[in-house]
Design a protein around this nucleic acid. Structure first.
Lengths: 154, 154
DNA sequence: TTGCGTGCAAAGGTTTTGCATGGCA
DNA sequence: TGCCATGCAAAACCTTTGCACGCAA
């Protein structure tokens, strides 16, 4: 039993292993279920959600809500150095999720903390915008301002 | 009929008016319904969603998804100057949504665009973290790293 | 033996969709 | 007259919850 009064069960270990394997990528509750199925085992979706929630609470995983109606994304929590924090950028056009290791973001975090009293948690924050590729094939430029091609799950 | 081939209906006008009135605050689909009810009128929830979606597509409103299972927030789209863009900070502890007008954010946007090719859309981005007040009453400091008091809708 | 973990099914909430009707242009 | 907008109900979807049973410690 760990610090949080949690048992060390097979499911827990396997989900954690899977998350570690996928480090740098994000996974949904469904992905976990599929992973178990592909191994010939099976697991209830409720259990998956409960375990994922536990791990988020323990700081082992991070959770991102990208869009309404879209399943939440979980990701193994790396422990980045102060100087190179990890942020996520999501392209609103193609839906791509980009990992960014960028000192400037940490700098912004510092500024916001000092000037505005708000302590930024880069691990939970998703920056929205348009990725390089989508910018090139962007809709008719210089005509209307709403260049955010609304794109649902891809 | 406007540029997008949309009719100018009473509902549309009233929702837009309401959104303008609430400028700087955020509203949900339910808020809109309540607004109509309080005026003695009524409107179908489906209509509200359809209109809100239209307006987001047109760039008139912005949409934020703060948490899974939580209703999406819409907000009248101000047209901020380049130098003073508006970002939202959400406290993961108390759920408060803070508006920030901060040049540093614009600067970060510029950096990310140049260095990483990703064009940040501050209007759609929500920064997560801990607000000044919650930081003071924060859980046991310097013990465990998971100081993100998971707090559901308040 | 105690209490967390699990599975199943059901419920919860938000959002979308189908279809017939109403209203703008 | 042609389309878009609307209302209603039903559906879809992700997620949570209740309960009985299994399993770790």
């Amino acid at each position: 039993m760990n610090a949080k009064g949690r048992y060390r069960t097979k499911h827990r270990e396997e989900i954690l292993l899977f998350a570690k394997q996928m480090q740098g990528k994000h996974l949904t509750a469904n992905d976990v279920c599929r992973y178990f199925l592909e191994k010939g085992e099976k697991i209830g979706i409720a259990t998956v959600y409960r375990q994922l929630e536990n791990m988020v609470e323990e700081g082992v995983l991070h959770k991102y809500v990208l869009d309404a109606g879209t399943p939440a994304c979980f990701e193994y929590a790396e422990q980045p150095s102060e100087h190179e924090m990890c942020v996520h950028c999501k392209c609103t056009s193609c839906g791509k999720l980009i990992h960014l290791h960028c000192g400037e973001v940490a700098a912004l975090g510092g500024h916001i903390t000092q000037a505005h009293g708000f302590q930024l948690d880069t691990a939970r924050t998703v920056l929205y915008g348009t990725c390089a590729e989508c910018k090139q094939v962007a809709p008719i430029k210089g005509e209307k301002k709403d260049d955010h091609v609304v794109c649902k799950k891809t």
